[in-house]
């Protein structure tokens, strides 16, 4: 266990109805790194995300964040400890506006009674709202913050989700297929934006199928297959690894 690891999984296992979907997975993510989690469909990548963010309890092992075991911490408290995430299928609140969705991302930063009672909807220049607008601008989203998100195109919504995840000022940002469904230009923009986020000291953990995106962004990867870790190292190393090649064979060639 390297001393500077910000997030560690130690022997994490999870079974659903007797079927083991995650089997004794361990890895350490050093502080500030851009870390990729890859593998064929059904390898358990999203399940690992759900276990780290506390959607399901783990059966065995530990999830350690900055030296603290958070395995039994309720999911709503994990974001306060600096752990934030996005979702594979866009999970923005469809009936909230862009600004409201982004402000929801601040929730863990605004838990005092006074904050909760602030009528943010009536105060367009209030601190929370200004922060949200600024974050949208930083991400290069030139849209009306009052627009209801379900009326917006896919690429924009995908990016809003990343912005929302950033609003909690995370130290570890987990992104589940952030480039899925984006066109090449949008993908390149997203990678550039995530690098600026990383430059501010945020550790990134990214699940992604687009290998050129992973190559462009991630410094190191873990490869999962059938719930087990089969490789850890650089993407180039993974592409040369026989076990990884076999895992992808028939489903997808490693680019």
């Amino acid at each position: 266990m390297s001393a500077e690891a910000i997030l560690s999984l130690r022997g994490v296992s999870k079974a659903f109805g007797g079927l083991k979907v995650i089997d004794d997975v361990s890895f350490d993510i050093p502080k500030g790194e851009r870390f990729g989690l890859i593998g064929p469909n059904g390898a358990g990548k999203t399940t690992v995300f759900n276990l780290i963010s506390g959607v399901y309890p783990i059966d065995a092992g530990q999830v350690v964040l900055e030296g603290n075991d958070i395995s039994t911490l309720p999911s709503r408290k994990r974001i306060r400890n600096g752990l934030s995430r996005s979702f594979q299928n866009i999970r923005l609140m469809p009936h909230l506006s862009v600004a409201e969705n982004v402000m929801l991302g601040q929730h863990s930063q605004a838990l005092g009674l006074l904050d909760l009672m602030t009528p943010v909807g009536w105060l367009p220049r209030q601190r929370f709202r200004r922060e949200a607008d600024a974050a949208l601008a930083r991400a290069g989203l030139d849209i009306d913050p009052g627009e209801v998100v379900s009326n917006l195109p896919y690429g924009i919504r995908k990016k809003i989700e990343v912005v929302r995840a950033l609003m909690s000022k995370p130290r570890v940002l987990m992104l589940d297929e952030p480039a899925a469904g984006l066109n090449p230009r949008e993908t390149a923009d997203l990678a550039a934006f995530l690098k600026t986020v990383s430059d501010q000291g945020v550790t990134l953990l990214v699940v992604e199928h687009d290998m050129s995106f992973v190559k462009n962004l991630c410094e190191r990867v873990v490869v999962l297959n059938f719930g087990s870790k089969i490789f850890e190292g650089t993407l180039a190393g993974a592409q040369a690894d026989p076990a990884v090649r076999e895992a992808y064979l028939g489903t997808r060639r490693v680019a």
Binding site: S53, R76, R85, M93, H107, L116, S168
Partner: peptide, 19 residues
């Protein structure tokens, strides 16, 4: 109220957002 409306739309995500 924002937290209420978020729960109405998606309880799981709201919880992960710290609600």
């Amino acid at each position: 109220g924002l937290a209420m409306r978020a729960l109405h739309d998606d309880e799981l995500v709201s919880t992960i957002m710290g609600v």
